[in-house]
Design a protein around this nucleic acid. Sequence first.
DNA 1: GTAAACCTTCCACTTCGATGGAAGGTCAAG
DNA 2: CTTGACCTTCCATCGAAGTGGAAGGTTTAC
Lengths: 143, 143
Amino acid sequence: MRIGELAAQSGVTAKTIRFWEAEGLLADPVRTPSGYRDYHPDVIDRLSFIRHAQTAGLTLAEIRQVLAISDTGEPPCGHVTDLIHQHLTDVDERIRELTETRSLLDRLAQRAADQDPADCDGYCAILQPPDSPQRSDAAAIRR
Amino acid sequence: MRIGELAAQSGVTAKTIRFWEAEGLLADPVRTPSGYRDYHPDVIDRLSFIRHAQTAGLTLAEIRQVLAISDTGEPPCGHVTDLIHQHLTDVDERIRELTETRSLLDRLAQRAADQDPADCDGYCAILQPPDSPQRSDAAAIRR
DNA sequence: GTAAACCTTCCACTTCGATGGAAGGTCAAG
DNA sequence: CTTGACCTTCCATCGAAGTGGAAGGTTTAC
């Protein structure tokens, strides 16, 4: 399978596949006699994994880490478990933040919906919610 | 309140505050006679809102949109509602993706945990899960 | 046997969201 | 009245994750 087909099958552009290869997320593939990359269909799963991990908020560097350790196939996989648990924690944290912001947006929408035009005194009441969110987390957002 | 204190209070660096101002997310603040920015404490809430919206996956451009419309204080706020609903949909989508990836990571962790060393035949079994995830979504991940 | 489609490498550029640092002005303490 | 912390603007740079395009080789289809 050449890169164009892999791209078509996976939904990841050929450019990006080469980029990920250069970044060490994909092993150098076999080449055809003429130098074309020749992929095993399993690579599709790997690309899919990378995309999934990305939507989890992992950087390519982190994903490379997971993949690299996983690729060694070292027996007890202790490292892997640690790493994955770390990333699980990260993802949970991101879901928590997202959910919080979702409810914030929801409250904004609510306020916008049942707002009497008269309530808009100069400043639309949307910005400073009466139940001003606690700010204790402000410094924690480092991403 | 000068920019340094605002930075300390909000957990957003002074550099970033100036940057956000330049990007149109914050109004030009009042200046002291000597030209120093002089902030009302309410700005802390605005900074906090921006951070929250960022973790929701909104770009600064989108956040600027929401804030700008909200700032006009236009009576029916129809635009605002539309926009916020759009962003709510986005956030829901992101939460969905994250949850999916969370469960993927979870399965990986599980597999790593109850894996017999012997099962690691060359390739750590972590990468190609037997229940290969359906790939129908591969093209949909555009972010 | 030639045109189109596809592949190669390499290098530059893009966008987003900041950060760093220079050069200089201001303010409060000792 | 000087030292140090803090502020100003402006401009360059960064890192992440690609994307574009040139220059050239290969394969396929007619």
